[in-house]
Design a protein around this nucleic acid. Structure first.
Lengths: 153, 153
DNA sequence: TGATTTCGGACTAAAATTGTCCTGTTGCTC
DNA sequence: GAGCAACAGGACAATTTTAGTCCGAAATCA
């Protein structure tokens, strides 16, 4: 299992929330429009994040989503695993023992080490870190970036 | 892109060659039987490895495959990337600029760091290392392992 | 020549990804 | 409590990727 769009969109959506300050609410509709993520797909993704306790949802008029914690207390690992399940480079590494390789499985050990490095990186990065990084980068809108890419082709 | 069976089978196949000593040849047919990998799939995988210069092929009667270098000079990274292309956690990281995220793409930077850690692990491990690791592990045949797993269910 | 073995491309089935859609359910406000 | 606003959740569908299969051709050896 790798990082799919679902995971990417999830981080992007939460990043949106993190940017607008602590407990401010936002509508799925607004997030999807501003981040250019398909609305119904994002809605589905946020359901997982609610279940995982990363965001709270408020129904009804005036509702929306808000982070349950400070951005500095939410790691990227937590977000991605809430959406995609445990990160695994290989089926070897999944919960249920499902690997039936050769002797003792030297390969599984290797995959496990690689995967642990990935988890290290993701667990060591919070939403607050990403927001801070953004601030140091040239602020291009996603739309501008798209135009640039189109021009390259 | 993650590690698929193709990559796994490739490493397993080469490991088989590495175990039987330096330049000894082996038939696809034997490797596939002993490692329990579908033959025509493995054949296809080995074609990529030939192209990448990791193994040499000899056609005709008495032919087969042999490593072109010592197992200690062949890294797992090289094998996997020969088969699956460059390892990338996300389309962001692929050759062609294909990412069109928001401002400056803090996420892409993060994915890149994670992916670099994976490549570190794989480029730091050679076939010889894997063979050595196997020697320290309880030698179970793949078949035995399968039976154990079946018993767990 | 004939047996053996890889080469390479076309093809296919199954699974995962990436969505859409529709029918709730909840909660707010008048 | 009527009606609207917003999320919840399941069924469904299109596309892409994975995981192979198959077969004819080319090379090599005896």
């Amino acid at each position: 299992m790798q990082i799919t769009r679902a995971g990417e969109y999830g981080v992007l959506g939460l990043l949106h929330l993190a940017r607008r300050g602590a407990a401010r609410m936002a509508l799925i509709d607004d997030i999807s429009r501003e981040e250019e993520i398909p609305k119904s797909f994002l809605a589905k993704i946020f359901q997982s994040l609610v279940k995982a306790g990363v965001v709270r949802s408020y129904r009804g008029a005036g509702g929306g989503f808000a982070l349950t914690r400070k951005p500095s207390e939410i790691t990227v690992l937590e977000i991605i695993e809430a959406i995609e399940g445990k990160i695994a480079l290989q089926r070897c590494q999944l919960d249920v023992p499902d690997c039936e390789h050769m002797e003792g499985c030297a390969l599984c050990g290797l995959f496990e080490r690689a995967q642990d490095r990935v988890r290290d990186v993701f667990s060591g990065t919070t939403l607050a870190d990403l927001v801070a990084t953004e601030a140091t980068l040239p602020a291009k809108t996603r739309h501008t970036r798209k135009l640039e890419l189109a021009a390259l082709k």
